[in-house]
Structures are given as C-alpha cells and as structure tokens.
Design a protein around this nucleic acid. Structure first.
Length: 494
DNA sequence: AAGCCAACCAACCGCCGACGC
DNA sequence: TGCGTCGGCGGTTGGTTGGCT
C-alpha cells in the first residue's frame, strides 16, 4: 500500500477535483442540496470525517453523509471509500498464497463475481480481488499461461457436482409447488436438474470445471482480443441487452431466463478452460510446468471434444474462439456431413445445460437462459412422449392420483440408464432429450390433457428441430452473424 | 539520467435490482 | 403501477510506482 496515495496532505481541493454536478444524468454522483461534489483521491481529512460519521451513524444511508458531515462527496463515493479503505478489519498488503489459491478456485467456480468472492476472503474487498485478478489475467495473458491450474478446475468440478446434488434436493422439494406457466419460456430453472451431465459416461460432455469457463466460451466473442475478426464487436453487450429486451416481450418469465446474454464476454477463460493454449503461441512444456501436466491441454477437458479433437499444436494458431467457425465451415452443414464442431458444441451445450440456478450458497454459474427455455420445451415434449410410449408399451395408464414424486424418480432413473448408451453426437441430443423427463412435465402430462399420439410425431419432431435451430441461430446471433430480428421472427414462428 | 513499460491501485462510471412512495 | 432514490456490483480509467534499458 505504499503506492497509495496521491492524496494531498493538506487536504486542499484543487479546482479540477471539484466537478459540477452530474445531475443531468443522475447516474453517478449527483449533487445534493445544489452543492458541488468533489471527485478524485480522498484526503486524510475527508477520511477522518467519514470515519467519524460512520462511528456516529453507522454504515448505510450514504447519501446522508454529505448532509450531516459536510463532506463534499457523493454517497457512492463514501460507501466505496469506507468499504475499500476505511472499514475496520481490512487486510492490507499483498495476497497470501492461500488467498491467491482461494481466489483462483473461487473464480473458477464463480467467474467475475467479485463481491461474492470477497465474502470468502475476510478482510479483502471486491475491488482488491478484481484488481488482483485483472493483473493476473494480464500477466498470464502475456506469458501465455492458462488462468486456471488443473487443481482449481478439478475442485470446481467437485464443488459444482456437490452443489448440483444440493440443488437437486432443494429443487425436488421446490418443484412440487411450482407449476408450469402456459408460456413455455416461463420456466423454473429447476427443471434442468435432471439434465445433469454424466461425464463419466458421456464422451461429449465437457467437464464441469468449465461451467463458468464454458459459459465463458461464448463470452469471449466480444473480447477485445478478438476484435480484429469479430466484425460487429462494437457494443456487443448493448445489442444483446436490446435483444433481451426484445425477447422479454414474449413473456414475463422469459427475461429472467436470458442470462445467457451476460455470459458472452471473455474468450480467454474459455480457450483456457477448454485446454487451449493461451493466447496463441506457447510452449507449455518449457515455460509452465506448474500449470501444464504431461498431457497439456487436457487438464480441464480430459474427455471433451475440443481438446481431444484438436491437437494443441493446432491451437497454437488459434484465431477463433472455440465456438466460432468461419463462414465457409458453416456451409458444410448438411445431413450427410459429419457433425460440425458447432453443432457438436450445441449438442454439448444441450447435454450439459445449466443446472440448478436456484440461489444458494453454492455457486451456480451456469445459467444459459434461452437454452434453458429451449431445453425445457424439448423436455416437456419428450417427457410427454415418454408417457405415451410408456402407455403404448405397457398398456398401462397413469392415473391422476399417482404419486408424482415417485413417478418422477422412476423416470429419472431411466434417464440415467439412457445416458449410459454411447450415442453419436448428432443423434444424442434428440435421443437423450426424448429419453429425459422432468418431474413437473411428467406430472403435468399425467394429470390431464395428455396430448394425443399424433401430436408427438411430426409436430414435435419439428419442435425439436426448431429448438435446435433456435439454439444455433441464437449462438450465431450472439456472434453477430444474425440480426436479432431474425431470431425474433423465428421465435414468433414458434 | 531519462525514457519506457508493466504492475498496481484507487476511484469513476454505468447498470441494475430493491425498495418506498 | 409507475417513478424516483438508494445501494451494490462489475467494468474501466487514469495516476503512481518501480524496474529495466
């Protein structure tokens, strides 16, 4: 902290530090009582005033600081100063090794949730952690190191699995009280706990450490590093947000399901978490024995399709994020083609969808709203199909009085068995989706209005394909290749 | 000694959700 | 229900410091 600070010892505020109120927008610190608010570094005198104020009045009500203490700082600035510097029990100085390790693990699990990470590091502030991480990113970027060591990935996997289990329990309890909205996009996220990937079985499912990171696979499409080839990179998040707003008009529940937009931000982590050397030219064996094991590039995705299919020597020339392919590649889509990596990625996404976004202490960074919605739609259809096929095969009917829980559990047991079958990447999605179920949908279909059998033939297959198409188009839209309006039209067509 | 550069850090900024009226 | 305010959060900026050439 010796670097700190530029504060003027005498506390005199220079003219350029006092700004006229930002009142026209009111976004940051406006002025109260028509006065002007000071910006810039805090002086020790100001600190003393703030400390005194907090002693008297306690934390909170920061906008009142100016009124009561005569401090010409906006409430936000006061809160920040207090939280980051004046608050008691703040640890100062460099992070210890334990803290660094913890940050890495937490970031692997949570992503850029600095405040939540700070909660796990007593005496540390989110700002500190953020700065540390950003510095670390730059350092590793420069050195071509991965951000996450294998241990962190592994722990994130275990933690995620544990949390998924917890979520499942909570969700199962909760789901009994949830009802499906008629709008198929108003879906409780809890619907997807049954879609938990069984990584030990499925060869195409990325490991869970990539939850945060894999969600960031897409994030990176707007990363500055790739700006050179991401043509419409500008205001990506703004566009996505607009799309969110647009799509939110479909239904109340939909907006909440669209966190996927927020996840398209950081490709670096994605490339790393998928075992891609990062940035582009790196001899892992000589430069970083700490982070790279013998089978370099596979530490976070040992059985994933990315690291396995692409030799890392190829990745040295990596120019596109993992999910981004040139337009010429896209032209190769067709029934006779082997699954393109993008399709496969979509399948992977579908196979390991975000799970359990029920807020709990466990980080649940996976939340890919639209995919959730689509998956739910597909699952609802498929579960209904299951019901029908069960009926036809067993010649037994589900009575409305059946115990929903037990039936759900039974169906989910069959789901596990289904996962055991090695299935081709393209075929897997539909197969697995049709073999899956949700307690709610099962319950729902068992209760009443079971669709007639013809409903589940062409129409629902069409829906399935449509859903996949939407996923793909959505991904493309996220990559700025498809204007939002097309996505909108297709959704309307649904 | 001077210039450059990376690292570090504090603070600003804009967005968003919660809350109260 | 709509609006304004407040507080929190994450991204970004800009200043300072220290090391290297």
């Amino acid at each position: 902290m010796s670097r700190m600070t530029s504060e003027s010892e005498d506390g005199i505020v220079s003219n350029n530090q006092i700004e006229s109120p930002l009142g026209e927008e009111g976004n940051y610190c406006g002025s109260a009582n028509g006065g002007v608010l000071k910006k810039g570094p805090w002086t020790s005198a100001e600190d003393a005033i703030l400390i005194e104020y907090v002693k008297k009045h306690g934390e909170g009500n920061w906008n009142a600081v100016q009124k009561h203490s005569g401090l010409f700082r906006c409430g936000k600035s006061c809160r920040l100063r207090w939280a980051n510097h004046l608050r008691p029990n703040l640890k100062k100085g460099a992070f210890t090794q334990e803290e660094e390790q913890l940050i890495i693990e937490l970031h692997a699990k949570m992503g850029n949730k600095w405040a939540r990470m700070a909660a796990h590091l007593p005496g540390r502030t989110d700002n500190e952690i953020k700065n540390y991480w950003n510095t670390r990113i730059k350092r590793h970027q420069r050195a071509g190191l991965p951000l996450y060591p294998p241990e962190a990935s592994l722990q994130a996997l275990q933690e995620s699995q544990r949390c998924l289990n917890i979520d499942r329990i909570e969700i199962r309890n909760k789901s009994q009280h949830d009802t499906l909205q008629s709008n198929s996009y108003g879906i409780p996220n809890v619907m997807f706990d049954n879609l938990t990937p069984h990584q030990s079985i499925l060869p195409y499912v990325p490991e869970l450490p990539d939850i945060t990171a894999s969600s960031m696979l897409m994030k990176g499409l707007s990363s500055f590093q790739y700006g050179s080839f991401m043509s419409p990179i500008m205001h990506r998040q703004k566009r996505l947000r607009e799309a969110t707003t647009l799509l939110s008009s479909f239904g109340g529940g939909m907006k909440n399901e669209f966190h996927l937009f927020d996840q398209f931000q950081d490709v670096d982590k994605a490339s790393q978490s998928f075992g891609l050397p990062f940035p582009f030219d790196y001899d892992s064996t000589t430069k970083n024995p700490e982070f790279f094991g013998e089978n370099q590039g596979s530490h976070t995705l040992a059985n994933g399709n990315f690291s396995a299919s692409k030799p890392t020597s190829e990745a040295v020339k990596l120019e596109l994020p993992s999910l981004q392919y040139s337009e010429t590649d896209l032209g190769g889509w067709g029934p006779s083609c082997s699954p393109s990596p993008l399709i496969e990625s979509v399948d992977t996404f579908i196979q390991s969808p975000p799970t359990g976004t029920v807020e709990s202490d466990c980080p649940s960074p996976r939340n890919s709203g639209l995919l959730d919605a689509l998956l739910h739609e597909a699952k609802t259809l498929s579960s209904a199909k299951n019901q029908l096929s069960d009926k036809s095969s067993n010649s037994s009917t589900v009575t409305p009085g059946d115990d929903a829980d037990s039936s759900a559990l039974n169906i989910c047991e069959t789901e596990r068995e289904d996962y055991g079958h090695p299935i081709s990447p393209l075929g897997h999605t539909a197969t697995s989706l049709f073999s899956e179920c949700t307690p709610i949908s099962a319950n729902e279909s068992s209760l009443d209005e079971s669709p007639s059998s013809e409903t589940f033939t062409g129409k629902h297959l069409f829906h399935m394909n449509l859903s996949r198409m939407i996923v793909i188009i959505y991904l493309f839209e996220a990559m700025s290749w498809v204007p939002p309006v097309i996505f909108y039209i297709i959704l309307q067509a649904c």
